[in-house]
Design a protein around this nucleic acid. Sequence first.
DNA 1: TGGATTACGAAAACTGTTTTCATTATTGAA
DNA 2: TTCAATAATGAAAACAGTTTTCGTAATCCA
Lengths: 171, 171
Amino acid sequence: MVTINTNTPVDEELVKEKEAAFAAFIQRRGLKTTRQRNTIISTFFRMRGHISVEELLVQVKKANPRIGYATVYRTLHLLVESGLVEERRFGDGLARYEGHSAVEHHDHMICLECGLISEFYNPRLEALQESLAEENNFEIYRHRLELYGVCKDKAACEARKQQKAARAQGA
Amino acid sequence: MVTINTNTPVDEELVKEKEAAFAAFIQRRGLKTTRQRNTIISTFFRMRGHISVEELLVQVKKANPRIGYATVYRTLHLLVESGLVEERRFGDGLARYEGHSAVEHHDHMICLECGLISEFYNPRLEALQESLAEENNFEIYRHRLELYGVCKDKAACEARKQQKAARAQGA
DNA sequence: TGGATTACGAAAACTGTTTTCATTATTGAA
DNA sequence: TTCAATAATGAAAACAGTTTTCGTAATCCA
Ligand SMILES: [Mn+2]
Ligand SMILES: [Mn+2]
Ligand SMILES: [Zn+2]
Ligand SMILES: [Zn+2]
């Protein structure tokens, strides 16, 4: 298993690449380059994790308070269409977005106590899914696997939970 | 792999068992037995597949047109709480419900062309997930795995698609 | 630089679901 | 059997997240 580390700082090189890739996409589609879209994508790519529209908007407004959420929604759709970003839904009723990690595809473990989302990738798991699809005469385009449960490290889990509560209080 | 067959007729024995189990749950919780709830659950348990609220309400109204969707929603929540029914979300934005099949837990393959949902269960897959969780110091409560793709049997897939379109037209 | 085209932002609309609230039904005790 | 107390119902309003509308503003190519 590969467990994907989310705590490393954001790689500026990579961000620049993604910004360029998005610019190319905009070009290709005959769309226009705008101040707002640039602000939104450069904010987004510098954030970590699985980001909700709300969370993104808060950050975006720090750079330009006049940007509204319609534009954020619209830009996120473009990011998804460009293939640079994936939409996730972990069952709390809101869409979350993530730029691709180092590993192209990955699945998730979600702690129901502290909210920690761990990412993992396992080739045996992927292969097994393929073979099950094969048996059923089915061709897989994409899949989603989410493991819901709790951290076994209760101390760390509780600490994250506290931290989260404090943040919610302050906000 | 076990592929679960959804085309067999509903087992009346099993339905009666489920109705009894729900009655027991209602009792245990100190809730009241009502005409509406009985209608809703007996309708639900006689339907097959992954049923949306809308689909259920249509059938329920045939037995009692005065039943509103608030009661259907409320009863479905009770069914889920009772453990007799599971809620599913396959990404089309609406909740779907299913009574347990022969196999307690199962995962899904969803055809993006014809909408066919195949159910499967594979112990190796389950075990692999457990071992991945173990490696990550995580305890799984539940999981969801969905494979999205297309049927390889194009003829059968197309036929289902046509049938679906015809049904939508007629409704 | 003009002018067709695209994007923006605020607000309204939409969708699936939940809640409210006045009314009705169920239930266990008298 | 009544009789409350309690819970459930149904219509409509509220809700949350997201999408659409529409008048105005920005972009960008000839
Ligand atoms: Mn992820
Ligand atoms: Mn199923
Ligand atoms: Zn945790
Ligand atoms: Zn198909």
